[in-house]
Amino acid sequence: MDSGAAVEVGGLVRSFGDRAVIDDLHLTIRPGEFVALLGRSGCGKSTLLRVLAGLDREIDGGVLVPRRKAVAFQAPRLMPWKRVWRNVLLGLPGRPERDAAIRALEEVGLGHRADAWPKTLSGGEAQRASLARALVREPDLLLLDEPFGALDALTRIKAQRLVAELWQERGCAVLLVTHDVEEALLLADRALVMEGGRIAYETAVDLPRPRDVSDPRFGALRARLLDRLGVEGKEGPEARETEPGTHADTSVAA
């Protein structure tokens, strides 16, 4: 295995009963690389993320990940009886101080809501609080499990831009699990497709940032990924009949 990699997975197998959800999977992620993982529901994407996060250890094969890692899920999973800043510090060892939470919240634009109760947050604010809880751990590997899936279109675009900015500032490796092809291409250096419990396809996303969905090269990559995922992709204006400033829904159906 490559000791210089942020993530190195070799021959990974994860079975539930007689069914191998992950079957001889190999994956390498370089330090500082942003990787998006696509695939239909049930293909093993979230299972792989849980293995990398250390939340699922019933595995065979080799998995090397950084000691400092953090995960943000689609559901923010905030404790309603704790104020936002205390939620940010949940799970940290020792007695972390409030200042650490405030710094992380300010980084995601939520410093002014530090003393709020979770039930008073909007969906986008709750997701940013969840992201702050991941960032406060100073991760070398950030794992994102469909963190924008429950957000409305405009809030999702803002959240995507925030993650892109934080990644560029932090320089950590990121693995984003998503159903949205366009989201993957807007954010990632490399897009992977998971099928049959393995990484079946990958492509570099060698486009300048910030990315433009109207760029013909972006459209070609999107069509190629949709085709690989078994979704007929359209090109041209009819493929993007959305409100101005938003992007088309190119998520993969379950």
Results as ranks from 00 to 15, higher is better:
196 G>R: 11
18 D>I: 08
30 R>A: 15
119 K>R: 15
213 V>M: 04
152 D>A: 09
63 V>Y: 03
13 V>Y: 09
135 L>D: 06
254 A>I: 02
130 S>K: 02
174 V>R: 10
24 D>R: 13
22 I>Q: 06
222 R>G: 08
135 L>K: 09
176 L>Q: 15
185 L>G: 13
29 I>V: 12
37 L>R: 12
160 Q>E: 04
181 V>N: 11
125 E>H: 08
252 V>Q: 08
195 E>A: 09
11 G>L: 12
64 L>G: 12
93 P>N: 14
243 E>Q: 09
253 A>I: 06
233 G>P: 01
207 L>F: 05
4 G>D: 15
198 R>L: 04
220 A>R: 14
168 Q>Y: 11
171 G>D: 02
144 L>M: 13
159 A>V: 01
118 P>F: 15
130 S>H: 01
129 A>V: 09
149 G>Y: 02
32 G>C: 05
8 E>C: 07
190 R>L: 07
20 A>D: 06
235 E>S: 15
49 L>A: 09
197 G>P: 00
118 P>T: 13
142 L>F: 00
75 A>Q: 15
22 I>K: 09
126 A>F: 02
89 L>H: 06
247 H>A: 01
223 A>S: 07
44 G>D: 02
234 K>H: 11
19 R>Y: 11
131 L>R: 10
151 L>Q: 14
210 P>L: 10
31 P>Q: 12
225 L>C: 12
137 R>D: 02
146 E>P: 06
181 V>D: 13
176 L>S: 14
46 S>C: 07
199 I>D: 03
10 G>H: 13
35 V>P: 03
12 L>I: 04
28 T>M: 03
242 T>S: 05
209 R>S: 05
20 A>S: 15
140 D>T: 00
205 V>H: 08
144 L>Y: 01
71 V>F: 07
235 E>L: 10
195 E>S: 11
172 C>W: 01
66 P>Q: 15
14 R>V: 14
186 L>T: 05
